[in-house]
Design a binder for these strands. Structure first.
Lengths: 158, 158
DNA sequence: GCATCCTGGTTGAGAGTTCAATTGTTTGGC
DNA sequence: GCCAAACAATTGAACTCTCAACCAGGATGC
């Protein structure tokens, strides 16, 4: 499985990689703390965002799972929590008896609106403001390439 | 707490931010799968790396926590697992009766050597190869800025 | 019509993480 | 020397995530 021919990272690559790991961890932490005052985790927040953008504010479980890059099982658990909180509701899918649609409630929308302010402010503060616009957009483009290499179809259920 | 003056992300920023989230999630997933064949999680792997680089292959718990950007408590739990596996050992810190030193064992070093091949290959595959060298290094520099903005001292116990 | 397979979604157990509370040590004022 | 405050690390409970097993409902072959 492993052989001696692995090409190690040179010092610059090493440094870049460590910054990646460190930044990702710190950014996550900041955003988590921002959302917790709205009783939302980051994964939960993303689900609400996707639902709010969907036609009729509803999506099938599997579509939703792909959009937020979650496993089916993880989505089920997370949606359970959101449903318990009253921010989301489930209903059977009319076209497909196996399917389940997930629907953003009005309460969910209200929560989302409130949380979005905090969240966007956090994103600006940690990721956008420290960089020039060009740097930030370049970052985005690089990461688009990275994501597309791993999951070209754009719909990965992990 | 929230007011109406929040500046929302424009479409390009939006796109960049979503790529960030998506890429980070996908990269994490790939690396996790790479390490699992060595029975290591990514946080565990990082701990072994830091120990292997430290003088005498040992660090105090709090230093280690800062290096890998973990909370104290999380580090304790993770080190418990590593200790149970025999890859790490604890000993009291001679200078400070409160302190505990964490030490990489020979078995731990061997495991680390094996896992490093898989891991570095994974990092290359998902993060380095899809980009030009300049792009990758620019990514690293941007993320260094991001990390330093959040945690200027470079020693954040989260 | 029914046996088989595939897909959408859920469940439960086990592992990992967070938070608040706890134990034990050192430090600093007096 | 003593007491309070600060610090290092650990603990346990509650919660989240992963994986593998499961239970439908649809599609396919005959």
């Amino acid at each position: 499985m492993e052989n001696a021919s692995t090409r190690w990272l040179d010092p610059q690559e090493q440094q870049a990689w460590r910054s990646y790991v460190r930044a990702v961890r710190l950014v996550d932490e900041v955003l988590r703390r921002g959302l917790e005052e709205h009783e939302l985790s980051h994964p939960e927040y993303e689900i609400l965002v996707r639902l709010s953008e969907a036609p009729g504010r509803a999506l099938r479980m599997s579509e939703l799972a792909d959009e937020v890059v979650n496993s089916r099982s993880r989505l089920t658990h997370t949606v359970n929590r959101l449903e318990r909180a009253g921010w989301v509701a489930r209903r059977p899918c009319p076209q497909d008896g196996r399917g389940v649609e997930c629907l953003l409630t009005d309460a969910g929308f209200t929560t989302l609106e409130a949380a979005a302010h905090t969240h966007v402010r956090g994103v600006r503060e940690v990721l956008i403001d420290p960089l020039t616009r060009a740097e930030f957009l370049a970052l985005g483009e690089s990461l688009t390439k990275v994501a597309n290499r791993i999951d070209p179809a754009g719909r990965c259920a992990v």
